[in-house]
Amino acid sequence: MNVVVKRLVFLSALLSASFIIIVVVFVILSGIKPFISDNEGLGPVSFIGFITRTIWLDGPTFVSNMYGAGYLIANTLYIAFLTLLVSLPLGVLTALFIAKIAGKRTGALLRSIVELLAAIPSIVYGLVGAGLFLPVIYNTALSFGIQTNGGNSTLAAVIVLTFMSIPTLTTISEVAIRNVDLSLEEASLALGTSKTQTHFNVVLPAAKSGIFSAAILAIGRALGEATAISLVAGNALSGPTFSLFNRTATLTTAMLQGMKETTGLDYDIRFSLGIVLIIVILITNFALNMLKKRVGKMHAQ
């Protein structure tokens, strides 16, 4: 009996761990099919072409195999970068306020607010983006004489993603800020600096490793988010888009586009986008981790 139970729980753990292999293997297997198979007479898609082309499909659907995701990669990275640019300061400053400046009650209230923000499903953020921000962006752009595609734009995607990354950034940064050794702070105060100076010049730099981890997590989420931005991006079929008010498309929105009514290569190519997405996330993570190590060393010197 004991042996059976022990074996059962061991097998459960083994099965749980095996899913990551299943995910990676099967997404890769389906994703490389367009590059190596004949695609029902269309001929194999060229991989280099796929990751460099700036038009989603050069030619008609079901006739051409000239798919391109180069602009999607650029858009995805650009949007994630802009999101981090806006949400990182917001999140870190909020965390600093909660951890060091706010009173006990305000801090607790804000923490609950951040928890709730984290619990709201991404589709709801997408809905608010589409229902509330798209008209605002459309009208604002119009008042500056810019015609937008109903407000669908890079800006809308960045706003929605900013909403979604703030809770992640705030929660993890707050923990990092709290974990900074109090003696560091006291030493700084003893040297005659003000509290605020200490917070910004001593506490934040000391917490930067944790803040970096928060940024890595948030950017991973921004790169992989799908349904929410698909409602506000506008599904541009070529690019890349660097203007804030032009419509755009990312790796994930392209995966969702036209899902309902398509088959063959036009469906299978989504798996290839999946591989590209995983690679983009891995490379971004790797680069940010290298940067984190660098910055960590810089301060130690």
């Binding site: 909020t94 306020f97 400046i101 709201i120 809905l127």
Partner: peptide, 27 residues
């Protein structure tokens, strides 16, 4: 300078809180 920095954090916290408000208000 201190007050400026401090109000920055307060402003950020307010924006975070208003994000929740905006979502609930709209929905």
């Amino acid at each position: 300078q201190d007050n400026l920095l401090k109000s920055l954090t307060i402003g950020a916290a307010l924006m975070t809180a208003s994000a929740l408000f905006i979502v609930f208000y709209f929905v």
